[in-house]
Design a binder for these strands. Structure first.
Lengths: 205, 205
DNA sequence: GTCTATATACTGATAGAC
DNA sequence: GTCTATCAGTATATAGAC
């Protein structure tokens, strides 16, 4: 059977090309604000031709989100399964987020902006499930951190989880790869604030 | 001239009632995803009747955003003009955000979710202007904080501003008035993390 | 894999009666 | 202030030719 050199690869790459064009448009204009004609125009074809590759506009965003989430959670699993200490795991999870914003900015933006709306339909129920998984990851990391003595014992785990979850992803609104900061630099600054705060002096008294 | 008891007040309150219904729908479903029929249904009237009160759907969100921004920046101005010390001003600005989420959650959500899209049209150019004003407020507060010795001198002001700006508003995604936390409690926890960090021990060494 | 042509439904908005 | 009726524009999606 033909594999790498066959027609299948060319078909796949065209499909992925269209998916990438759609992702960028969904991310910048919003899913509902992006028409199939917008996508087709950007790809240099007519809107009807898109349906040779995809069932519907919804299928496109579905495929984008499934692929993205699978990749992201594989990375989370690797961190959780590692033998790093609690603080290192937390730092790695934070860095993973900023790294993901750099590599998969469109998908992050789509998930952040559309998950609530898309999640209303049954087809996207897995988005809510992924949200639960994500909460478990962060709560586990924070609990480990408190138990190991790396983090302050008086933390409200739930509120802290929400702050971290929100803040590590919201940078997708302004972060641009190739801009004045690298993802690593942003992660460094964020970790400094998150771990030690912005106040001067000796806190935690 | 009839004022409080006249027909004008009744007209105004109906208008505000419709505006409130629209705000809640725009906030939960998104501006583009909300049809004029949705708004009319929720108000118990037919879509055409809405146009007796408003020129267009766009006019509704425009009025919502203008009113909201005017109110918010009046509160910022009061903090800036006060004689409080730098750290108190910063704390007040943070608390103002969470308080605004509690009192004007729909408007905050609309602004957070739609400002980028709406801002593309000239009619909503003031949203970008308000964004600039907001940046000036936070940068001023942070700079004062560093100069007065209240904040760490090694802070990257621009990055710190972005983190604070994003994080004080993003809680609108999950905060619900009447839920397990008050806005004050959330602000307390957030300020603790922001000022002193989540790590145990003596940082800033 | 793309185009031509078009079905079908929805959307914001209007005009005039009540 | 709301309803009836409806228009014009736009949206997703389809069928079959090339």
């Amino acid at each position: 059977m033909p594999d790498q050199a066959g027609g299948s690869t060319a078909t796949e790459s065209r499909r992925e090309e269209l998916l990438r064009i759609a992702a960028d448009l969904f991310a910048s204009k919003g899913f509902r604000n992006t028409t199939v004609r917008d996508i087709a125009d950007a790809a240099g074809i007519l809107s009807g031709s898109l349906y040779h590759h995809f069932d519907s506009k919804e299928s496109m965003v579905d495929e984008l989100m499934r692929t993205f989430q699978a990749e992201l959670f594989a990375a989370y699993d690797e961190i959780l399964a590692s033998s790093d200490d609690a603080r290192t795991k937390l730092e790695r999870a934070v860095r993973l987020s900023f790294d993901t914003i750099e590599r998969r900015g469109a998908e992050v933006a789509i998930f952040q902006n559309e998950a609530a709306t898309l999640g209303a339909s049954e087809r996207f129920g897995y988005l809510a499930e992924r949200n639960r998984q994500s909460r478990d990851v962060w709560v586990t990391l924070l609990t480990e951190g408190v138990q190991s003595g790396a983090l302050r014992p008086d933390l409200d785990i739930t509120l802290t989880y929400r702050f971290i979850r929100d803040t590590v992803w919201v940078a997708v609104r302004w972060y641009r790869p190739g801009g004045p900061h690298t993802a690593t630099q942003v992660a460094d600054q964020y970790l400094t604030i998150l771990l030690d705060g912005i106040a001067k002096g000796t806190p935690h008294a």
